[in-house]
């Protein structure tokens, strides 16, 4: 065979093999990922669109991104609406216990990596430095199903022999989006005496220069527990779940996808540093907190 015809045949073979590897998007199976809204639907879509696109490309399937409100999540998941979930760790343990959701990967973000914690703060100079000092004070919490914005602090108080239901003069939860930031500003501007702030939000606000470390007393901080979590419905094929997990764990800050003609960094876009592979028992500290605080999935009436 002449060299030129050999090269042409080789090029044709390469082109054919590349084409064979491509499956039109319309013929691919479609799976749904339910993403828990942190602040708003629009923000959830903006954050997780690149990641969802990446996962689809990596696995060769179509993924549909569905933003879900926290309180609606358990019901909609149980109804079989989502194949994969991205929720906070408290929702994960609820869905794990009640609907057999399996652990896929845990988001890495901030100082504690794939863990986080909840802190109770007061304004510097307020004289409130211990949990005992909080007696009769007004407190602002994050959303009720937020492990680092509600549960962790609630449990911290209970463990210190302080009953938030009776020992505080009042406690509330802010309305609308950006609740965690509102909580911090609520104390900063003196509207409330103490607040339940996620360690990650304090950290981010300090890093962005929105607050200074010296502005607050940190009255207490909980044990660390896992951060936001990807889970998979038990009906899914193990191979698909494993590939989904591998795709998340392999993500590096350099990975990009093309979205609406723009090249976007996947992790940056999702505000995530990476993903870790935890084991279900890593969530036990959170389960203990939920038990002590009589919260789902262990609440008793």
């Amino acid at each position: 065979m002449k060299l030129s015809s050999f090269l042409i045949t080789l090029l044709l073979l390469i082109a054919l093999s590349l084409l064979a590897g491509c499956q039109p998007e319309t013929e691919r199976p479609t799976y749904t990922i339910g993403y828990m809204n942190c602040n708003s639907e629009a923000e959830t879509i903006q954050r997780f669109q690149p990641l969802t696109r990446y996962l689809g490309e990596k696995l060769g399937v179509n993924f549909k991104l569905v933003p879900v409100d926290t309180q609606d999540f358990p019901e909609r998941f149980k109804a079989g609406e989502f194949d994969f979930t991205h929720t906070n760790s408290l929702l994960y343990i609820i869905l794990h216990k009640e609907a057999g959701l399996s652990l896929v990967a845990t988001e890495r973000r901030g100082e504690y990596g794939s863990r986080t914690a909840g802190a109770i703060i007061s304004r510097k100079g307020s004289g409130i430095k211990t949990i005992d000092d909080m007696k009769g004070k007004r407190m602002l919490f994050g959303p009720q199903l937020a492990p680092s914005g509600f549960l962790a602090q609630y449990d911290l108080m209970l463990q210190a022999g302080f009953d938030p239901e009776t020992d505080l003069s009042y406690y509330g939860i802010p309305h609308g989006s950006f609740k965690h930031e509102k909580v911090v500003y609520g104390v900063y501007f003196g509207a409330y005496d103490v607040a339940a702030a996620p360690a990650l939000d304090l950290e981010t606000m300090a890093a962005e220069g929105k607050i200074r470390a010296d502005d607050f007393n940190i009255i207490g901080q909980s044990r660390i527990f896992p951060y936001c979590t990807f889970g998979a419905a038990k009906r899914l094929d193990t191979d698909l779940v494993n590939r989904f997990q591998r795709a998340l764990l392999e993500l590096t800050p350099e990975v990009t996808v093309e979205l609406d003609g723009e090249v976007v960094k996947v992790l940056d876009g999702a505000w995530v540093d990476g993903f870790d592979q935890l084991v279900d028992s890593d969530y036990d500290p959170l389960r203990e907190m939920a038990r002590r605080a009589n919260m789902p999935p262990y609440q008793e009436f």
Binding site: E111, L202, R212, A213, I218, Q221
Partner: peptide
């Protein structure tokens, strides 16, 4: 033992 505050201060210095 004020680890949370120490981390916050560290974050601030990191700027």
């Amino acid at each position: 033992g004020e680890y949370a505050a120490a981390l916050l201060k560290l974050k601030e210095l990191g700027r």
